[in-house]
């Protein structure tokens, strides 16, 4: 995912951006991402934010949002809230709770069921997500391997909620915060695209400081982040 801003322009819902798209991809097929939709021959914006372009032909609107809307294939962190038949109910912050099958764990079978209780934190991928159905999560990849997904269990960790754009920003290769921090400090972090972040450090003091830093980085540019980091680790 590349974040190249097409100009410094901010769009409001209802704006038509045909000409903007034509200047970048004239006569080509384009892919419209979140916040953009096609009405007749016009491409209209439906969310207020800045227009982004990812080569070769993808456009989307980057906007501030707190509420998660499930999308297939996204990695999310959820909290188990209960059981329903063969499924766990997982709170991922969206309007409907996600379903997680007992068998969607590595090595799970009818006999060997995972033992999770309400309040446990799981990291997984959304296998089914559309507007008419409850989203379904899975903690295995296509080969049936966990691949880093599954129960998140660590004694010194914390889970906290941030805005969705901060989560996207942290995960984007352009953001230097996590790599820079990693070169100075040993810690483990899981960022879910639903804005939930699980953070594990050696001590609670470190965890608290890092959590504060991540929360404040939402409104900092790369250069400002470097300055802050330099001030912290003299």
């Amino acid at each position: 995912m590349l974040l190249n801003n097409v100009g410094e322009h901010i769009y409001l819902p209802g704006d038509v951006i045909n000409s903007k798209i034509q200047t970048v991809c004239d006569g080509e097929t384009v892919r419209l991402g979140p916040g953009l939709s096609k009405h007749n021959t016009d491409v209209t914006v439906s969310k207020a934010g800045s227009l982004c372009f990812g080569p070769p032909n993808t456009f989307w609107i980057d906007c501030h949002q707190k509420r998660y809307i499930p999308c297939k294939g996204e990695n999310v962190i959820g909290v188990i809230s209960g059981k329903q038949g063969d499924y766990y109910k997982v709170d991922i912050g969206s309007s409907d709770q996600a379903l997680l099958n007992f068998l969607s764990f590595e090595g799970a079978s009818k006999r060997n069921r995972p033992n999770l209780s309400p309040g446990d934190v799981v990291f997984g991928k959304l296998a089914i997500a559309n507007k008419h159905m409850e989203p379904e999560m899975t903690c295995v990849d296509v080969n049936g391997k966990a691949n880093g997904m599954g129960l998140v269990d660590d004694k010194y960790g914390i889970l906290f909620q941030t805005s969705l754009n901060l989560a996207r920003k942290l995960l984007s290769p352009d953001c230097i915060l996590l790599p820079e921090l990693g070169s100075r400090l040993a810690f483990e972090v899981i960022v879910g695209l639903n804005g939930k972040i699980a953070l594990f450090c050696k001590s609670s003091a470190q965890t608290i400081t890092l959590m504060k830093l991540i929360n404040e980085s939402e409104y900092l540019s790369n250069e400002q982040m470097l300055d802050v980091l330099k001030g912290m680790f003299l």
């Binding site: 801003n5 901010i10 409001l12 934010g49 501030h64 920003k169 409104y219 900092l220 540019s221």
Partner: peptide, 15 residues
């Protein structure tokens, strides 16, 4: 005015 407000909010948000 709406446009200005939104761009002011997003100004620092953009990488």
């Amino acid at each position: 005015f709406f446009r200005d407000s939104v761009s002011k909010k997003l100004a620092a948000d953009v990488l």
